[in-house]
Computed example of a mutant assay.
Amino acid sequence: MTRKANVKHFEDKLSELDSLVKQLESNQLSLEDALKAFEKGIKLSNDCQSVLTQAEQKVQILLENQDGEHLQTFDPETNQ
């Protein structure tokens, strides 16, 4: 996935998570629907956290190499 697609993917998930939170806060969902929304929200939250962790690792790599050395390409699959 390209960086732009990854950012778009993240923004879409974050927007969906925000929508779910608003639905849950409205207290208008049945218990069953609220549980489904909560479960989906947990998954979205975990997905967003994963993207943020990868971005943080990429920033760390860049900061460690800021003295002009060759920058390493971060591979989220191997976390390197």
Rank of each mutant, 00 (worst) to 15 (best):
F38K: 10
L31D: 10
L29I: 01
L20G: 00
I42L: 09
K4F: 03
S30E: 00
D33A: 13
L35S: 05
S19V: 01
N6M: 03
E39G: 15
N46P: 04
L62D: 08
Q80Y: 13
G41K: 10
K43C: 08
V59S: 15
L44D: 06
N79R: 01
D33F: 04
L31N: 08
E56G: 15
L14F: 14
K36I: 10
C48S: 09
Q28A: 04
A55V: 12
Q28E: 08
L52P: 02
L44M: 01
Q23A: 15
Q66K: 12
L63R: 14
Q80N: 08
S26H: 00
D18Y: 09
F74R: 02
Q72A: 11
L52N: 06
A34K: 06
Q54K: 11
N65L: 05
T53F: 08
E64C: 14
T53M: 11
S30R: 01
V59L: 13
H70V: 10
H9E: 04
D67R: 14
N79D: 13
N79V: 08
D47A: 14
K4I: 09
N6L: 01
K40E: 03
E56F: 04
K58V: 11
G41T: 00
V21I: 09
Q23H: 02
K40T: 14
Q60L: 06
Q66P: 00
L52S: 12
V51Y: 04
L31Q: 12
I61A: 10
A37F: 00
E25V: 12
A5H: 09
D12T: 11
T2G: 14
I42P: 01
L71A: 07
F10H: 07
P76I: 11
K4Q: 07
P76Q: 00
E64H: 13
L17H: 12
L52M: 13
L63W: 06
L29W: 01
K58Y: 10
E56V: 06
N46H: 07
A34N: 11
Q23L: 08
L20C: 02
L35G: 06
E64P: 05
L62S: 05
V51L: 08
F38I: 12
T53D: 14
L20M: 01
H70W: 02
L24C: 07
H70G: 14
F74W: 05
G41V: 01
E39N: 04
A55S: 15
I42A: 03
N27A: 14
D75W: 04
L14D: 05
S30Q: 03
V21P: 09
N6Q: 13
A34P: 01
L62G: 13
D75Q: 10
V21M: 13
A55T: 03
S45A: 15
L14Y: 03
Q54R: 06
H9Y: 08
Q57H: 09
T2Q: 07
V7Y: 09
M1R: 14
F74A: 03
F74Y: 12
L63H: 06
D67A: 14
